[in-house]
Design a binder for these strands. Structure first.
Lengths: 172, 172
DNA sequence: ATGCGCAGTTCCAATTTGGAACCCGCGTTG
DNA sequence: CAACGCGGGTTCCAAATTGGAACTGCGCAT
């Protein structure tokens, strides 16, 4: 499977990763949530190569995660802002950061804290069930195939298996 | 910034990405949550190259996200299972899948549905504040620097800026 | 007219990936 | 007992991606 085939797959994770599943993209998005908006600022904060940064920003714009908004004329310059689709990635970012806080923090503790301005407290993100509001336990979640599930022909696994079989047949 | 410098950074996101921020790693983990445990099964389902799969599994084991458990002797064969640290990635996976369900589903709807066995309903994951249990709105979250924040010397941005300055000085 | 800030693009070298083939231990089959 | 197949990798090379430095282009300030 090539990287660009990912969005063809009938898996929401694979499709999401075709947009955000890149080395740099999530770091760019983290900075977007921290109000970073301009090319050079991203470049300086991340230490990313300029060509790759240009490419990733373009892909995020193409994917409607960011939009370019003119912030001055003569010459016209743009800044990058999260769309609603981009803002909806907030839980993803928070979940990743929280895991890092719990499992990867150094001796000195976590580098950033989150303050919930609605309640005024420092908090952690918690994932709950949209129906019963209970905290989600992985063991209490069953996965069922939905209406958009794979067409029965040619899943990746079948393609690989038949390739193997073909090789063996050829070899023997 | 090289990929292997990521875990040095004082940012929980960067540190997390040093473990899971790879093209394939999240897809491997998705399959782990779907009870896939063996090399060939990962390989067949994902269509990933065998060398890369071997490398990623090894890195996940090194990072204590997966463990190898012997499931037979003669020859001894191992399967890969999530550790507690790995199980803790469940919210990350769910958040990503949910975003894909909302923003990337095809005409036919979402490929997978989630059933909460505790309450018996099909559900979506929702992120709430650990203190007040309100649904989190990105605009209601403030970020503060914590005890593990960057030492004042040599942030990535400063390194890049001084590199730029140095180049200019050299050029001029 | 010269330099500067910003937002990129071009170019080449160094890494990383993809894919096929090969290897190894062991149990089974002929 | 030789060949075969399975599970789980490793080796090797070609192709794609990345990193890094330098260059471009625009208009304003000097």
């Amino acid at each position: 499977m090539q990287w660009n085939e990912l969005d063809q797959q009938s898996c929401s994770m694979a499709r999401t990763l075709s947009v955000i599943g890149d080395r740099w993209t999530l770091l760019i998005l983290r900075d977007c949530f921290l109000k970073v908006r301009r090319f050079d600022e991203f470049q300086a904060r991340l230490g990313i190569g300029r060509p790759i940064l240009a490419d990733r920003l373009q892909k995020l714009v193409d994917g409607f995660v960011l939009t370019k908004v003119a912030y001055q004329q003569n010459p016209t310059r743009y800044e990058y802002r999260l769309t609603q689709k981009g803002l909806d990635l907030h839980p993803v970012i928070m979940a990743i950061v929280h895991w890092g806080d719990v499992h990867m923090a150094g001796r000195k503790g976590r580098p950033l804290l989150h303050l919930h301005t609605s309640c005024g407290h420092q908090f952690d993100p918690v994932q709950v069930c949209s129906v019963c509001a209970e905290v989600l336990d992985p063991r209490a979640v069953q996965v069922l195939s939905g209406p958009g599930a794979a067409r029965p022909d040619s899943t990746p696994s079948e393609r690989v298996k038949s390739a193997r079989t073909a090789r063996r047949a050829k070899a023997g």
